[in-house]
Structure formats: C-alpha cells, structure tokens
C-alpha cells in the first residue's frame, strides 16, 4: 500500500455485512426485538446508497446548472416533507407555511453563503460541491427545525395557561412567549453544539474521514471540516430562529389573542 486509496470491491462490502450478521445472532440469542427492522434498515441503506452512487456518478460526469438546481430543489422538498411528516396533524396551516419558508429560505441563504462566499465555487453549479454540502446543511437544518418546532408545539400545550396569564397582565405576545422560544431554540441547537464539542476527540466527522481515506492531506480535510461545521451551525441557527419566531407568531391573532384552536 503506497498511501493511495484502497478501493472496496463488492466482496469486501459483503464482509462488512458479516458484522451485521453477528449483531443479528446476538439479538436472536437475547430475544431483542426489532431484528427485522434492523435488517431492513441495513438493506435499504445499501440499496439507497448504490442508487445514489449511480446517480451521482452520472451527474458529476455531466455537470449542468439545471440538474444541480433540480437536485437542490428535490432536497428542499424532501426536507420539508420529512418535517411535516414528523408532526402529522399537529401543525396548523400557518405553521406548515412557516416550515416551508424557514426551511427553504434559511438553507438556501446558508448554502449560497457557504458555496459562493466561503468556498468561492466556480462554476456555481459544480455538482461535486453543491450536492454534498447542500445535503449536509439542509439535513442538519431539517433536524434542527423538527426539534425546535416539537419543543414549541409541546410547550404551547403545556404552557397555555401561563401564556394567557401573561397576556392578561398586558404582555405583548412576543414577551409572553419569549421563555418558550428561548428554550425551544436551545433544544434545537443542542445536538449541533454537542457534536462540535466531541468532534476530533470523541469521533472524526464523516466528511473529514472520507477525504482522508481518499488521500487528501489532513490539514486540507480539517479546513473543510471546520468550515462545514460552522456552516451547519449557521444554517441550523438561522433556519430554527426563523421557524420559531415566525412559528410562535402563528399562535396569536391580529388582536394579540392566544388562539387556543391552533394549540394541538
């Protein structure tokens, strides 16, 4: 081995499945449930990634602005659909609109800043950069919005009386709901903050590991990783902030009344 890349062939990937078999046997022996679910997840992940690999291989070989744009748009749609799906019927129409706006506008801004200002990408649609970076920023924002909105929606239900008490004392809705918005923002940002604290000590992030395995100089890989983690903080922070501030407003009407019919 001369520092180059060890290419994993299919037989070697198959050997990785042996590790899953070991876990399955352990699960059978100890009668732990969800065996089918785990096997299904492993197989589905494999198929999904093979398909993505085929698509990405083709897309990278034929870079074009419209294809990159289309994939970017599909990611956005998928992220919004995933967030909405997590809540099923618990989001009012107003909150669903906020999800669409916060997720798409927030991540588009963050991705644009990252690619065009930080990386200085040219041409702007270079899929090798746009797709993975947009994926990381959008994916993390999606998790952040889901956590933040969950805290908001649950908090509205639990603190309905306290919020109405505050309105009765002459508070503006913004002031009445501020403690709730603050704690929702914290719970949405917590995983991102924790993962930064552990980075490099507890684990090496996936993107950096991948670049190092592919033979990139560690300092280059680290530069990218630091930038992408900061980009993730920026994207998650702005999208969650938008979602919570606009989302909180949907619980009140033009006369600053708490709309109890929107609390679910």
């Amino acid at each position: 081995m001369s520092g180059g890349l060890v290419v994993l062939g299919w037989p070697q990937v198959g050997l990785a499945f042996v590790m899953v078999l070991v876990v399955l046997l352990l699960m059978v022996a100890t009668r732990v449930g969800r065996r089918g679910e785990m096997l299904w997840a492993c197989l589905r992940m494999t198929v999904q990634l093979v398909l993505v690999g085929l698509v990405l291989g083709w897309v990278f070989a034929h870079p074009s602005w419209w294809l990159t744009g289309l994939i970017f748009a599909l990611m956005q749609v998928f992220a919004v659909a995933t967030i909405l799906g997590k809540f099923r019927g618990r989001l009012s129409l107003g909150l669903r609109r906020v999800v669409v706006l916060a997720s798409t506008a927030g991540t588009t801004g963050a991705v644009a800043w990252f690619l065009f200002v930080v990386v200085g990408l040219s041409p702007w649609y270079e899929p090798r950069y746009v797709i993975p970076i947009a994926g990381m920023l959008i994916g993390n924002s999606m998790t952040g919005i889901t956590l933040g909105l969950k805290a908001l929606v649950d908090g509205m239900r639990e603190n309905r009386d306290a919020i109405e008490d505050a309105l009765g004392l002459g508070a503006a809705p913004r002031a009445a709901i501020a403690p709730l918005v603050r704690s929702a923002f914290e719970s949405a940002l917590m995983p991102t903050i924790n993962s930064m604290l552990g980075t490099g000590i507890v684990f090496l992030p996936g993107m950096m590991t991948g670049q190092i395995l592919a033979g990139v100089d560690p300092m280059t890989a680290i530069g990218y990783q630091i930038a992408i983690l900061l980009g993730i903080v920026g994207a998650v922070g702005t999208t969650v902030f938008l979602a919570l501030v606009l989302g909180a407003r949907t619980y009140f009407d033009a006369r600053d009344r708490l709309r109890d019919d929107r609390i679910r």
Binding site: G168, A171, A172, D256
Partner: peptide, 13 residues
Amino acid sequence: PAIELRRRVPMLS
C-alpha cells in the same frame, strides 16, 4: 389596541 386594553384592565387568571 389590545395590549393597551390589557394594561389598563389586567386580568388575574
């Protein structure tokens, strides 16, 4: 204005 009304007429829940 609603907030002004509630400042003039606070309600104790």
